[in-house]
Amino acid sequence: MYAFNYQRPKTVRQAAGLLAKAGGDGKLLAGGQTLLPTMKQRLASPAMLIDLNQVDGMSGIELKGRNLHIGAMTKHADVANSHVVKTAIPGLAALAEGIGDPAVRNRGTIGGSIANNDPAADYPAACLGLGATIVTNKRKIPADEFFTGMFDTALEEGEIVTKVIFPVPQKAAYEKFPNPASRYAMVGVFVGKKGSDVRVAVTGAGANGVFRLPEFEAALKTRFNAKSLDGLSVPADGLNGDIHASPEYRAHLIGVMAKRAVSKALGK
């Protein structure tokens, strides 16, 4: 790790001010589960680290009408263990329960995860699969517009994620096939059904990060059942390939995980 300056603001406004002041050399520290290992390996060297852990009002879980609000600094373990989440969107609580290991879940945050947009992270699939809205210090961004590519988001310079708003679906579930070594999602599929709308979001597989499967969604809108996906397949083009999984294997797993997610959402 290289030497860096460290600031711990108390408000989002202070944090934004510090970030602006640091120019391109500032980096926000949420749970640090990606950033700190990267810095330790000297692969990242921000001149200024702005720690959000003391900022007021950035964490917490609240059901407001038919929307679940989760503060950006809410830890995965808190989402996983929240009675509110378990009741409103059990598939989301289960997703959080499956992130990393207990140490990661007790440090990592939802805001950090989606702002980082690791192509193998779990939360981006939930945001896309539930049609979430990402709230920042400047605006509200629909999930469909937020995730713009591998480690890339619609966030602008100086913009800080403050909360994520999930519409509560009738049915939702996440099915992950973990990378055998890292246990990140090699393929993760989140399925959400709200009224007549069905969303199917895939993480871990796409070369450009999380994406939706319109064909699968159309089939499930007709009938929300795993059988509706019979005969549908995903082309391997544009999917990731590495020593653990070829694009073809990932394409196949997307089909399997999607069906399993639908069955899980139906309580089967």
Binding site: P180, A181, S182, D242, I243, H244
Partner: peptide
Amino acid sequence: VTASYMDYTM
């Protein structure tokens, strides 16, 4: 290629 636990499966 397998120089860390991200890719080497223990």
